[in-house]
Design a protein around this nucleic acid. Structure first.
Length: 227
DNA sequence: CTTTGGATCGTCT
DNA sequence: GACGATCCAAAGG
């Protein structure tokens, strides 16, 4: 099928799709498409974060100015800033008033790779880095595997920052949409503990599409904090 | 290949 | 005042 026909097949996910527990939403989010203008990426890795009963969740200690979006209507994007330089994006779920979210950890680039490379290069240039490998060529390179492989890289590639916090993925208000193009979630996703957290690190709430090269490669050992 | 340290700032204690 | 749902480059094997 042509690229145009493939795009025509993309249908938005209804509000009710998101009105569920993060543990229910996470597996069915796999293989859905995140779309922004000419850019599109397939979700290949996620992590579930619950609210009050999940010590690793930003919402664990209740509602604050930062995590307010997590308590809002489902189907929106919760974007937060961390490590003094990175953004991460979550899909908000559960009924309004109840916190819950699924962190997007990796996309397989589908459309707009040029734009994604440019966005990543611009980010690197902003901090004095070199152009991203592969930028400038029009074809796919091996480096494209890393274009959106990781929660902060994904935000760089899709141009997600402060302004996208609260963007509605159902209506597209805010510039971002989440759509189904007919590719089903994996019958048996890969499972592991969540990355980069200290609390509840053993819960198997990280899921990915088995065999996909864009899944973030976990460090050999989680960062050990010295004493 | 693996491991380490630096960058950098909003948020909550 | 500490530290984080991270990334990158450099150094070491």
């Amino acid at each position: 099928m042509s690229a145009a026909a493939a795009r025509a097949r993309r249908v938005p996910l209804p509000r009710g799709f998101y009105e569920v527990d993060p543990l229910v939403l996470a597996p069915v989010l796999l293989n859905k498409l995140l779309v922004r203008g000419g850019r599109a990426g397939r979700i290949v890795e996620v992590e579930a974060y619950r609210g009050g009963e999940d010590p690793a969740s930003h919402a664990f200690r209740g509602r604050t100015a930062r995590n307010a979006t997590m308590f809002g209507p489902p189907g929106r994007l919760y974007v937060y800033f961390t490590y003094g330089m990175h953004f991460c994006a979550n899909v908000v779920c559960m009924p309004e008033g109840v916190a819950g979210a699924v962190l997007l950890r990796a996309l397989a680039p589908v459309d707009g790779l040029e734009e994604m490379r440019a966005a990543r290069t611009a980010w690197a240039a902003g901090r004095g880095g070199r152009p991203a490998p592969g930028s400038g060529s029009g074809s796919r390179s091996a480096c494209d595997r890393d274009l959106a492989s990781g929660p902060a890289r994904l935000c760089q590639a899709m141009g997600i920052g402060r302004d996208e916090d609260g963007a509605d993925l159902v209506t597209g208000r805010g510039g971002l949409r989440l759509v189904d193009d007919g590719v089903p979630p994996p019958a048996t996703p890969g499972v592991s503990g969540r990355v980069g957290i200290r609390q509840a690190a053993d819960l198997p709430w990280r899921l990915w599409v088995p065999g996909d090269p864009n899944v973030s490669r976990a460090r050999a050992r989680p960062a050990v904090h010295r004493r």
